[in-house]
Simulated scan of single mutants.
Amino acid sequence: MYAVITLISGLLFGLGLAFSEMTNPSVVIGFLDIFGDWNPSLLVVMASAISVGMIGYSVQRKRTTPLFSGKWQIPTLQQIDSKLIIGSSLFGIGWGLSGYCPGPGLTALVNNPSEGVYFVAALIAGSGLHYFQAYITNK
């Protein structure tokens, strides 16, 4: 059942990305260009995502365990540290420069392979560097 729920969730997420045009880098860059030719359409996407998240946390507060798992997997860190600042800054810079974040970036392998290959290669390289750094640090 876990695999079925995961598949359905992924399909809904992908449909939402495609329907909202989050897979189109020019729409994303237009949203981020608040001092230029700003495209506010992604505000609806953001409001929808926040609403779904609020509903999810409301359900989580009322249930002791999830329906298809033994425990909730909720982030527990509450402090803002340098890893959070640096990571979110790098994410934002990459998103602003390319117009892709990881979900829509993967769809670019099909929609726009000439850009998608470079984005996904950079995503894999960045993830590899993170794990390499974590391995060296914990050694």
Score class of each variant (00 low, 15 high):
Ser69Asn: 12
Leu84Ser: 04
Tyr118Ser: 00
Ser20Glu: 01
Tyr57Met: 00
Gly126Ala: 10
Ala49Gly: 06
Gly14Tyr: 10
Ala108Trp: 09
Asp33Ser: 13
Asp81Arg: 15
Ser127Glu: 10
Asp81His: 15
Asn111Ile: 06
Tyr131Phe: 15
Pro66His: 08
Leu17Gly: 02
Ala122Leu: 03
Asn138Ser: 13
Ser48Asp: 00
Gln60Ser: 03
Ala49Asn: 02
Pro75Met: 05
Gly87Phe: 10
Ser41Met: 02
Leu12Asn: 01
Gly105Glu: 05
Val45Tyr: 15
Arg61Pro: 00
Ile34Tyr: 15
Ala3Ser: 12
Lys71Leu: 07
Leu11Pro: 09
Asn39Thr: 04
Glu21Phe: 10
Met1Leu: 07
Asn24Ala: 08
Leu97Asp: 10
Ser114Val: 02
Tyr100Asp: 03
Met54His: 08
Ser88Lys: 15
Glu115Val: 03
Asn138Glu: 02
Gly70Pro: 10
Gly126Arg: 07
Val27Gln: 06
Ala3Gln: 09
Ser69Trp: 13
Leu129Ser: 12
Thr65Asp: 05
Leu106Pro: 01
Thr76Gly: 05
Met1Ile: 02
Arg61His: 04
Val28Thr: 10
Val120Ala: 11
Ile50Asn: 08
Gly116Ile: 00
Ser41Phe: 09
Phe31Cys: 02
Ile85Pro: 05
Met22His: 05
Gln79Ser: 14
Pro66Met: 01
Met1Lys: 09
Phe68Pro: 05
Gly36Glu: 01
Asn112Met: 01
Pro113Trp: 06
Leu109Glu: 05
Ser9Glu: 03
Ala134Asp: 09
Ile85Trp: 11
Ile124Ser: 01
Ala134Arg: 14
Gly10Cys: 09
Pro40Gln: 14
Phe31Ala: 04
Tyr100Ala: 02
Val52Gln: 05
Ile74Thr: 15
Asp37Thr: 13
Gly30Ala: 07
Val117Asn: 07
Thr23Lys: 05
Trp38His: 07
Cys101Ser: 14
Leu109Tyr: 11
Pro40Ser: 11
Ile55Gly: 04
Ala134Phe: 09
Ser48Trp: 10
Thr76Val: 05
Met1Asn: 09
Ser82Leu: 15
Lys83Cys: 00
Thr65Ile: 10
Ile85His: 01
Phe119Arg: 06
Phe13Glu: 00
Phe119His: 03
Ala3Leu: 03
Tyr135Gly: 00
Ser82Val: 12
Ile85Ala: 03
Asn24Asp: 11
Gly10Tyr: 11
Asp37Ala: 07
Val27Ser: 06
Met54Pro: 00
Ser82Ala: 13
Gln73Asn: 13
Ile29Pro: 02
Asp33Cys: 08
Ser9Ala: 14
Ile8Phe: 15
Ile34Asp: 02
Met22Ile: 02
Asp37Asn: 12
Thr137His: 10
